[in-house]
């Protein structure tokens, strides 16, 4: 079973990972975006860690719902509402249980990813975070490590794609040859999840 602490530790792990990779994310974003992805997520997830400590939500669903809400209010770029919606919808789908099964979580996460697709209107192959999240959600039904691997592979697969959503789409063919920053941070999210599961307690 995955308890409240598992989800809190996942969010803390994402914050640490985003902090470590902020420069890399911003570098990727300066190639095809507006060079703020790293700092935006850094600010957002630092605020998430802070509010989770302060409010100490009592259920897995409440942890993710609060985290999502915090991202929407603090990020300031498109990644705020996108990641915010992902976490908030996943949290809502988890309901009020004190602990959830891996299967429950995989289903809730798939609902969260679907909500991201609906919000941004993007599909697989558009060179967005969905290119990492869609395969990750599918693999999550089987294992955390599989989900991390699928997300990483999905992010790398965005390199030859031409962007069809967001600011990068204005570049047209010039967006080809660069890895999508959003897909890259999505891979960080899933790698942090796998690391949290390996760390034990919640597994």
């Amino acid at each position: 079973m995955l308890d409240t602490d598992f989800f809190r530790r996942w969010m803390t792990a994402v914050a640490a990972s985003v902090e470590r990779e902020a420069n890399h994310l911003t570098e990727l974003d300066s190639a095809i975006g507006d060079a703020d992805h790293g700092s935006n997520l850094q600010r957002g997830f630092a605020a998430v860690t802070e509010v989770l400590e302060k409010d100490a939500p009592a259920t897995p669903g409440a942890v993710l719902t609060l985290a999502g809400r915090q991202l929407i209010s603090t990020v300031g770029g498109a990644s705020g509402p996108l990641y915010g919606t992902l976490l908030r919808r996943t949290g809502k789908a988890l309901g009020d249980d004190d602990a959830v099964t891996g299967t429950q979580f995989a289903q809730a996460f798939a609902a969260g990813v679907a909500a991201v697709g609906q919000l941004g209107g993007a599909q697989a192959g558009d060179k967005t975070m969905l290119d990492a999240l869609l395969p990750a959600a599918e693999a999550l039904a089987t294992s955390f490590d599989g989900a991390a691997e699928a997300a990483r592979a999905g992010a790398v697969a965005t390199v030859p794609m031409q962007a069809r959503k967001g600011r990068a789409s204005y570049l047209g063919e010039r967006s080809i040859g660069h890895q999508d920053p959003g897909a890259t941070s999505s891979a960080l999210l899933m790698e942090a999840l796998a690391a949290t599961a390996t760390d034990g307690v919640g597994a």
Binding site: G76, G80, P81, R88, L119
Partner: peptide, 13 residues
């Protein structure tokens, strides 16, 4: 961009 997505996500949830 984010102006559209932020308002949409605020309305949705």
């Amino acid at each position: 961009g984010s102006a559209v997505l932020t308002v949409k996500s605020m309305l949705a949830d």
